[in-house]
């Protein structure tokens, strides 16, 4: 099945189990930038995200959506509060341990694919596996090819990212995010730089991750169609959760 064939409005075919374990928890998280004029990016957010859930974080520009995603993704550390990942309180971890948790349990997809330009598509997908070092080189290559095949870009394996279309690059980025079989995939405006067909494709893929791969997906988006495909939508306004917010 090619990526284009996957396009279309996704719907959840299996209900999310009510007792699914919480894999990501923000506990009164505050992120403040200190300076002459302190700026609060995230202001006391508390939320639970369960295994297999597809969550869309929405809100106006500058509301703190991406900042919250970076905190949930352990790329940033909260000024106050705690982030729990897979039952572990990450506030006690240093930079290296946070990096290890990102490597093992999290995968990232960004608005601009952010593939390494000098490496082939295959090498880009193998990169996290090589860093983790739990798979033999042959095994890592086989898994990278399998992921690329699953997302319809197997034939591009030996091309450079610059030789791919925007939609193809984003699918490669998703394959790379899944390389180490993470618990949670975090996406920051994954369709923000794509045309409507490619956006639908990526939307379908991320939706399917929750069903076919049992992954948890947390995505920041401005895309209404993308949010509609999510199990849950969280509105963020001025760094706080606003249940009443609608796009």
């Amino acid at each position: 099945m090619t990526g284009e064939e996957r396009a279309g409005a996704p719907t959840r075919t299996t209900p999310l189990a009510a007792d699914a374990p919480v894999v990501l928890r923000a506990e009164n998280v505050v992120r403040r930038l200190e300076g002459e004029v302190p700026v609060t990016l995230v202001d006391g957010v508390t939320l639970d995200i369960r295994r297999g859930e597809f969550v869309a974080i929405m809100g106006p520009s500058g509301s703190g959506k991406s900042s919250l995603l970076y905190l949930l993704g352990l790329l940033d550390v909260p000024s106050e509060g705690r982030v729990w990942l897979d039952g572990e309180d990450t506030s006690r971890y240093g930079e290296d341990e946070l990096a290890n948790r990102r490597l093992e349990k999290l995968g990232f997809v960004f608005q601009f694919h952010f593939l390494l330009a000098e490496f082939t598509v295959l090498d880009n997908v193998r990169l996290p596996m090589r860093r983790l070092g739990r798979r033999a080189p042959d095994e890592a290559e086989a898994r990278a090819r399998e992921l690329l095949g699953h997302f319809g870009v197997a034939e591009q394996a030996h091309k450079r990212p610059s030789q791919l279309s925007g939609g193809q690059r984003q699918r490669v980025a998703i394959a790379r995010a899944l390389a180490n079989d993470p618990l949670v995939v975090l996406a920051d405006e994954p369709t923000g730089n794509l045309d409507s067909v490619s956006s639908a494709n990526v939307r379908r893929i991320l939706h399917d991750l929750t069903h076919e791969f049992g992954k948890t997906v947390v995505a920041v988006t401005h895309d209404g169609a993308f949010a509609a495909a999510a199990d849950r939508r969280i509105g963020i306004v001025d760094g706080r959760i606003d249940e009443s917010w609608r796009p």
Partner: peptide, 16 residues
């Protein structure tokens, strides 16, 4: 710099 940020987001440590 951007590649470095991507590597770190992927789980590369500062020492790596």
């Amino acid at each position: 710099t951007r590649d470095i940020a991507i590597l770190k987001s992927m789980g590369f440590r500062a020492a790596d």
